[in-house]
Design a protein around this nucleic acid. Structure first.
Length: 400
RNA sequence: GCGCAGGUGACAGAGCGGUCAAUUGUACCACGCUGUAAACGUGGCGGCCUACGGCCUACGGGGGUUCGAAUCCCUCCCUGCGCA
């Protein structure tokens, strides 16, 4: 099993490129959108739906699968391709590094909320993780085991990722947080570098390992991290700790971070932007030279009733006006939901309102298709050296 | 006709002398979601106003008791169940 990456076209006005990412006979054309399948499946969607959404790559999560399956469950896990009943696509696993942030720093400034799943109230302002040089302790009441704390480090992350059997795996990292100052951001970045070395060292499989660049919003740190990680013998590179306009950040800042980082990474290896993004973000990333993106937006927002179109995001599940709208979700959309099942805005709205589980599936299929089609258009745009036309087609009507 | 139980905001359903414009859920409205503790979360939800405060109208109708009533009493109307 070996990753190959071939650049087949370039944009003359930006760093955008078209590529062919292959792992054995699994192939993805890039730039590509990666569907998020945290727990080893894309929520609400059936295995047979995946190819119909033009999805080429999916990403599952080490931490959440470990939490769900436990050590024993992992022993007998048949692997993600079997688990997802999806043999043709490329599958990645995130290392669990993001949970260091989402259970940690992101909670420290978060607004309190209640999980309806567990009925448990999680107070904001309390980190649930303890980061040490060796690894991270998670205080997670929803963990399969009954232990007070769960310990995860680079070596264990590699072992779990090997058991999960994705094609591409990520180094264990500590994402930078917009809540941290420069000194801590440096500390986390340097730790991430050491953990990347340990991840490479610990890996025994043939899986392609991506190192992760951190460094937050600081130019010197980003560059330092890109040089460091870029020099490691990784199959590809992830760029982490980018939040676009979340957490008070901006698209411009994301663009800056990418522009500092990417020129320092090997030209002929794939680059993945972790956790981003929305349509505007995709253009920013592609033009900066990103090859793959993963983001929960298409799937999560679909379940929340929001449908993505060239007119922008429509709150079909939430807005009463769609009860009287018999039109298609998106004019001319060729997705299975719109073209095959011919679901109207009204029908979808009614399904959401009646809490019908089919709503999430239909919406998820549409959104995934929408983003995958966007990527297809972007590839065409780069090949034709007219990315601007694609940008116009997607962003003009939303005023971005 | 008699007996019993009830009539509370769009609906369901708490409250049972003051801290009640009234708990909670649903519905509805607005907003949010970026390596998924999210098929979810936050806020609003009688009207009016020179709105971190005030005024009015409100707990089936009417009338009482009381400094004060959604809460107690009388009466009328209505609903459900039981007996005729």
């Amino acid at each position: 099993m070996a990753l190959s990456f071939e650049i087949t076209a370039r944009d003359s006005k930006s760093r955008a490129r078209v590529g062919r990412l292959a792992i054995d006979d699994r192939v993805a054309e890039t730039p590509a959108y990666v569907a998020v399948a945290t727990n080893g499946y894309i929520r609400t969607v059936e295995p047979e739906d995946i190819p119909r959404t033009k999805t080429q790559i999916a990403i599952a999560n080490t931490y959440h699968l470990w939490r769900e399956l436990g050590d024993e469950g992992l022993e007998s896990y048949p692997g993600l391709h079997a688990g997802m009943e999806w043999n043709d696509g490329i599958i990645m696993t995130d290392s669990g590094g993001f949970q260091v942030f989402s259970f940690g720093a992101s909670r420290e400034h978060a607004v309190g909320k209640i999980s309806s799943e567990t009925g448990r109230e999680f107070r904001s302002g309390e980190s649930m993780v303890r980061v040490t040089e060796a690894g991270v302790y998670f205080r997670d009441p929803t963990f399969a085991g009954a232990d007070e704390e769960q310990y995860l480090d680079a070596e264990l992350s590699m072992r779990i990722q090997e058991q999960l059997g994705a094609d591409i795996i990520f180094a264990f990292d500590e994402p930078s947080s917009p809540h941290h100052d420069k000194a801590y951001t440096r500390t986390a970045m340097e730790r991430t570098h050491r953990w990347a070395e340990r991840s490479l060292e610990a890996k025994t499989s043939e899986q392609a390992l991506y190192g992760i660049v951190q460094g937050g919003a600081y130019e010197d740190l980003r560059k330092e991290s890109a040089r460091y990680i870029g020099n490691l013998p990784c199959a590809g590179f992830g760029i982490g700790g980018a939040f676009s306009n979340s957490f008070g950040d901006t698209h411009e800042r994301t663009a800056d971070e990418l522009l500092w980082t990417i020129p320092l990474l090997p030209e002929n290896k794939p680059r993945h932007l972790l956790g981003i993004g929305r349509v505007e973000d995709i253009f920013v990333g592609v033009e900066a030279g990103i090859d793959t993106f993963d983001c929960v937006i298409p799937t999560r927002e679909a379940r929340h009733g929001a449908l993505w179109t060239k007119e922008g995001r429509l709150d079909i599940g939430g807005k009463g006006k769609y009860a009287d709208d018999g039109g298609p979700i998106a004019e001319g959309c060729e997705c299975p939901t719109c073209a095959d099942e011919q679901v109207s805005r009204r029908e979808l709205h009614d399904l959401f309102r009646s809490k019908d589980l089919r709503a999430g599936r239909l919406a998820t299929i549409h959104n995934l298709y929408f983003f995958n089609e966007l990527m297809e258009r972007i590839r065409e745009g780069i090949r034709e050296d007219n990315l601007a036309a694609v940008r116009r087609a997607y962003l003009e009507r939303t005023g971005r």
